[in-house]
Simulated assay, not measured.
Amino acid sequence: MDAIQTIPLQPQRQDALSAQLEDLHRAAKRLGLCDAADALRSAFGTGEASTQKATTPLSDPDPCASIVA
């Protein structure tokens, strides 16, 4: 996927696994990787509305929201 190649490498993080999984879930949704985002949510309980970071812009479109299961 070309979009992934444009993301600059980031340094290793030392925050909690749950925080890293939450960010990974959000990144998967932004990249349109809806099945992967759903798998993260199912396996680890990430992506729940109650744990969304306050810094997440509410105006960001959710590419996975239009997917009908």
Rank of each mutant, 00 (worst) to 15 (best):
L21I: 10
A37K: 00
L31W: 08
K53M: 06
S42H: 11
L24A: 15
A28M: 12
D23G: 07
F44I: 00
L33Y: 08
A36H: 10
L33D: 07
A49V: 12
G47Q: 03
F44K: 07
A49I: 08
G32M: 08
L33K: 13
L21S: 02
D23H: 08
Q20C: 12
A43G: 15
S50P: 02
R26T: 13
A54Y: 01
D35L: 14
E22N: 14
F44A: 11
F44G: 01
Q20G: 11
D38I: 00
Q20K: 14
L24G: 07
R26Q: 11
D23R: 13
S50C: 04
L24N: 06
T56K: 11
K53Y: 10
G47C: 05
L33N: 07
A54I: 06
A49R: 14
A49H: 02
K29E: 14
G32T: 03
R26A: 15
Q52A: 13
A37G: 03
H25A: 03
E22D: 14
A39C: 06
A49C: 05
G47L: 05
H25S: 05
E48H: 09
A37Q: 01
S42T: 14
D38C: 05
Q20S: 13
D23F: 05
T46C: 14
T46Q: 10
H25P: 02
D35R: 15
D35A: 10
T46R: 08
R41C: 09
L33G: 08
A37H: 01
K53W: 04
A36N: 09
T46W: 02
L21C: 07
R26P: 00
C34L: 10
R26E: 09
A43Y: 05
R41L: 04
H25C: 04
T46K: 07
F44V: 02
S50Q: 08
D35Q: 15
T55D: 09
Q52P: 00
T51E: 15
D35Y: 11
A39T: 07
A54R: 03
R41H: 13
L24K: 04
D23V: 00
G47S: 07
T46H: 03
A39I: 04
D23A: 14
L31R: 01
C34P: 02
L40Y: 00
R30C: 05
H25L: 03
L24S: 14
R30E: 11
E22M: 12
K53R: 13
K53P: 12
T56H: 08
Q20D: 10
K29F: 05
T51Y: 08
R30Q: 15
G45D: 13
L40V: 03
L33W: 06
L31K: 00
T56Q: 13
A36W: 09
D23T: 03
A54H: 04
T51C: 06
K53E: 05
T46G: 01
E48Q: 14
A49W: 00
G32E: 11
T56N: 07
K53F: 12
A39M: 12
L31T: 05
T46F: 01
Q20H: 10
L40Q: 02
L40E: 01
A49L: 13
D38Q: 12
G47M: 05
H25Q: 13
L40C: 01
A39K: 13
F44L: 04
R30L: 14
G47D: 03
H25T: 08
A28K: 02
A37N: 01
A37S: 09
A36Y: 12
F44T: 05
Q52M: 11
T56I: 15
A43I: 00
G32D: 10
